[in-house]
């Protein structure tokens, strides 16, 4: 097992590559979740504001990046 992690002496290179990929995948999936939640929250707030009447629209410039 330790032989597997040693990667024949190339552990640093192999695991830096695959480790970065693993981190990137996790970060992208978390970012997608956040974006989805944010999209729904923004849409709901915009609708609530619309329901309250067009005169009271404080969220007009709510933009969603990310």
């Amino acid at each position: 097992m330790s032989g597997f992690f040693a990667m024949g002496g190339y552990a640093w290179y192999v695991w830096m590559s695959y480790g970065a990929a693993a981190v990137a995948v996790i970060v992208e999936i978390l970012a997608l979740r956040l974006r989805r939640r944010h999209a729904f929250d923004t849409a709901r707030m915009a609708q609530d504001a619309d329901a309250a009447g067009p005169a009271t629209r404080p969220l007009a410039d709510l933009r969603s990046n990310g």
Partner: peptide
């Protein structure tokens, strides 16, 4: 991942 992201984009851009 792309399809999941396009769903969020649809909600963002069609929210009205």
């Amino acid at each position: 991942v792309t399809l999941a992201r396009v769903r969020s984009i649809i909600v963002e851009r069609e929210r009205g």
